[in-house]
Simulated scan of single mutants.
Amino acid sequence: MYYCIQCQTLHPENYSIKEKIFVSGYRYEKDTLYNVGLCEVHKCNGQAKEKKAVSA
């Protein structure tokens, strides 16, 4: 699992073909430390827009 900084949610490894999981970035989610990464851009665009609309 990794925390995607693009869509601000957790993803399993191999969630997308072109994901990038960083070895020097981390984030706590529910008392668990996860690596930070980026999933394939077009796979999460809908989720990212929904999150921004809700938080605005």
Rank of each mutant, 00 (worst) to 15 (best):
I5D: 05
I5E: 09
C7H: 06
Q8H: 14
Q8V: 05
T9S: 10
H11I: 05
P12I: 06
P12R: 07
P12D: 10
E13M: 15
E13K: 14
E13L: 15
N14G: 02
N14K: 12
Y15G: 11
Y15K: 09
S16C: 04
S16W: 02
S16M: 00
S16Y: 04
S16H: 02
S16V: 00
I17K: 15
I17H: 12
K18Q: 12
K18L: 12
K18M: 10
K20Y: 13
K20W: 10
K20I: 15
K20A: 11
I21H: 06
V23F: 00
G25D: 07
G25T: 03
Y26K: 07
Y26T: 06
R27G: 00
R27Q: 13
Y28P: 00
Y28F: 13
Y28C: 01
E29Q: 10
E29L: 08
K30W: 01
T32S: 05
L33S: 06
L33C: 12
Y34H: 14
Y34P: 00
Y34R: 04
N35I: 01
N35F: 05
N35Y: 07
V36A: 01
V36H: 03
V36E: 02
G37N: 02
G37K: 01
G37R: 03
L38V: 09
L38H: 07
V41A: 11
V41M: 11
V41S: 08
H42F: 12
H42Y: 12
H42C: 09
C44D: 08
N45M: 08
N45Y: 07
N45R: 11
G46W: 02
G46R: 08
G46C: 04
Q47E: 09
A48F: 04
A48H: 01
A48T: 05
K49H: 14
K49C: 12
E50F: 13
E50T: 11
E50N: 08
K51R: 12
K51G: 00
K52G: 03
K52A: 14
K52V: 09
K52Q: 14
